[in-house]
Simulated scan of single mutants.
Amino acid sequence: MSGLLLAGDVYIDRLSDTGQSNGLVGPINVTSLALNSPSEKVQRPSKRKDTYGQTLDTVTLPQPTTIAMTFDDQPAELLAIAMLGDIEDINQASGSVTLSDVTLPANNAWVKLPHGNLTEAGFQLYESDGTTLIPASAYEVKWALGLIRTTPGGAQDGGVSVAAKVSYGYAAIDGNRIKAGTRSIVNMKIYMDGKNLATGLPCKLEVPKASVAPTQAVDLFSSEFVSTQLEGDVILADGETAPYYFDEETA
């Protein structure tokens, strides 16, 4: 006799709308992985005088298998699951803009320029004639987001909006964008390459299809590492003989 205490590398394959594989992501640091195969008892009680309330027949019916999983690895592929979204590439090439019209509000509010990752070198703000430079002390720029405003109390802060023209360069950006909130549920395959620490023997888990959704908000300003909690149903996929498989190997 021996106990079961698992360590394991978990891999997730997010399926397309048509059930096609998108490739496995992992190994993932999964802090909880619970599978539940409940059942429901159906009884036929007696209504007879002498046996009222006694059970005449009882049948135990299987119920859908459920899964609950928590992980704290957050690459883009997994963060997209937590945000119920899809991933697209960010491929902004470097470039420049010359004498583009911009209006700076009278209340010193920020204005978003069409690009982010602005370069400080070559950034110039002109009056509406396109030739008279506005001194750099009269405006403020947030380079990463591409925001600009008049400096409070500065030379251009006259209580009215300022019509101007801006010239700037912007750097290339590569990365991933999550288009969040575009899905209601996620279908995935799950694999685990595990080890029973009580015996030292290997074990494996395969969930051919699970339909899950996050159970909590993504707290981007959490004081702890962001984790994702998923819950849902384990689906009996076509061609499978069980909702999931757990192998205990002897060597």
Rank of each mutant, 00 (worst) to 15 (best):
T151W: 03
I12T: 08
T66H: 00
T51E: 14
S222N: 12
T182S: 15
E40V: 05
S128G: 03
Q229R: 12
P243A: 03
S46Q: 07
D219A: 09
G175L: 15
P152H: 08
T58Y: 00
M1E: 07
Q20K: 15
G194F: 07
S37M: 03
K142L: 08
T199E: 06
V102R: 03
I190C: 03
G153R: 10
P152V: 11
L78S: 12
A93K: 14
P75A: 13
G3Y: 13
H115T: 11
P64K: 07
S39G: 10
A7P: 00
S2R: 08
E140L: 14
Y52L: 14
A171S: 15
N36P: 00
A82H: 09
T150P: 01
Y11F: 14
N176Q: 15
R48L: 14
K41S: 12
M188Q: 07
F225G: 13
E127G: 04
Q156D: 08
K165D: 04
S100I: 11
P38Y: 05
D13A: 05
A80W: 01
A34D: 10
V207A: 02
A237E: 10
Y11A: 03
D247Q: 12
T31M: 08
K41R: 15
I235R: 03
G154N: 13
T98C: 07
L125I: 06
L35D: 02
L133C: 03
E120L: 03
E40M: 01
V30Y: 06
Q124N: 13
L145W: 02
T215Q: 13
N117R: 10
P208W: 12
D174T: 15
